[in-house]
Design a protein around this nucleic acid. Sequence first.
RNA 1: GCCUUUGUAGCUCAAUGGAUAGAGCAGUGCUCUUCUAAGGCAUUGAUGUAGGUUCGAUUCCUACCAAAGGCACCA
Length: 585
Amino acid sequence: MVDIRDIVIGELEKLSIKATKADLNPPKDIKNGDLSFFVKDKGFDIANLKLETVSHPYIEKAVLVGRFINFFYSPKYFQDVIKEINEDPNSFGKNTILDGEKVIIEFTDPNPFKPFHIGHLMSNSIGEAISRIATWSGAEVTRANYQGDVGPHVAKAIWGMMRLGMTLPEVTEKYWNKRRILDFFGLASWFGAKVYEEGKLMKHFREREAILKIGEAYVLGSSSYEEGSRQEIDEINKKIYQKSDPEINALYDWGRKVSLAHFEEIYAKLGTNFDKYFFESESAPLGMFVAEELLEKGILVKSDGAVVFKGEEYGLHTRVFINSQGLPTYETKELGLAKMKFDQVDYDKSIVITASEQTDFYKVFLKVLEFANPTVANKTRHISHGMMRFAEGKMSSRKGNVITGESLIADVEKLVEEKMKDRDLAAAQKREIMTDVAVGAIKYSILKQSPGKDIIFDFNKSLSFEGDSGPYIQYAHARINSVLRKAKEQGIKPCLEHVENPGELEHILVRFPEVVERAQLELAPQLIVTYLITLASTFNAYYANNVIIDKANKSSSYRLALAEAVKNTLAVGLSLIGIRAPEEM
RNA sequence: GCCUUUGUAGCUCAAUGGAUAGAGCAGUGCUCUUCUAAGGCAUUGAUGUAGGUUCGAUUCCUACCAAAGGCACCA
């Protein structure tokens, strides 16, 4: 399919006007056509424009309003787009902005031994959307997840685990071993599905319990750290790096494993997955190597027993790279990470998505990276998203007042379940839809606003199933699906023979590719969100005013084709923002 | 104190320097014997303050006010 903007640019050229794609915008009101160009050049003789010379099968007319030249697409264009969408539903809206580029995108970054909270949900939703949009723009995307499996927070959790006298590792370990043996001989299912299922439930239960308990241990360790147990915890921190204490090693290995397994469960629910996992335990030694080099070069300097970067000369602030105990801090680990990423993926662009509290830190880090590796520094871009806050104040996992991702999803699922109780669907299917709708509602509330702004989180207000919400779009999609199914039963097929005059729905529909392109250029998933809600709402109005399935109406098959094209576009759009589109709900 | 970000309707959010600032929620009044009412229709309501740049500013600049984040051994 041609890009209609190229055609319009060609027509403008005939009128001696030079325009780029960025100069062409859809008017706010569709009464003003499909694309408009604003004549900025005041010297241009606008009165003698010969708009009647504009001629192309896809352009019906061009009209001058004030200094706007408004282009109206022809019915033929709408037909061809609908045809194209339905013939190849899974490539509508693709563009070539990032054709052939390798892009690595780091997001989510939860820390083992700490809860996966709604802030991680935010990072994940935004990162996943940006990854998918980049893929749609022709990039080869590597999703990266960087996890802090060493450092003071881990020491705090381990200290807390010891204080709580956690014996869970033993029990769980024994259980896992038993199961592993059964699995190895392929006997697990042979033993009987019932026993196996019970085993799975037990495992799930124990892991859940373990996660909660580790969370508790972390909070205990954090508060004790500030109240005098600092030395003990620092000591544990050192031992974790050195792997010198068998008891700590055992707790550590187990806790790390349970945490990571738990994260995977959440990723599966969210519909996200990662190509590369990086760990601070790996980046730390590499980073130390780089930091030592920078110290020799004089980029980093010693100060009060620590190794620091004096950022003030660059309008930044001073940050510690190696602390006075000789251990690497976050900034040094980040140096190691940059090296690991580039060594493993020979990328053209590297995007890192974190919460906005890290914005200033990242500026300092990038400055240092410029000295260590200018090529890599220039390819790296940091995007920050806002923080999820409660009305009452900041959420802090150190204090334990967090909403975990898991509990939020579970709570929303309950609301969806209540809404679906009268639907006649198989139990398994219902459960799946419940998750899809709950996750859709959560992701929508995150993605509908521009990244970078805080979300004031209020369970009752922030999540909705009506109006401006994820489920509203999913509902429109499911509804069209139902119409298509019923039409098929009655033997009516979508077809473009008896077309009707294009209305608002057609005009909105064909804009999708331009929206995706802008979303990529501006790294702004909310543009796709806004588009989808408009498309769904326009369809719902259409649906209320037009009977689609009607054997007496020749145009019924056209309406069906139009509905199908809307459904396909909603499905592609939802997938670009990482929201699943259930066939029924 | 310094640096960064954000201030749009009662609430939660949109709006690449351009046309009448869009939605949803809440409020009010309608709408299911008809393709899924998680729907549709109607209606009330907004750019923090003061300047500046521009033919044109929610958008760019300055000051002020307010909120959030950051500013040495957390991540």
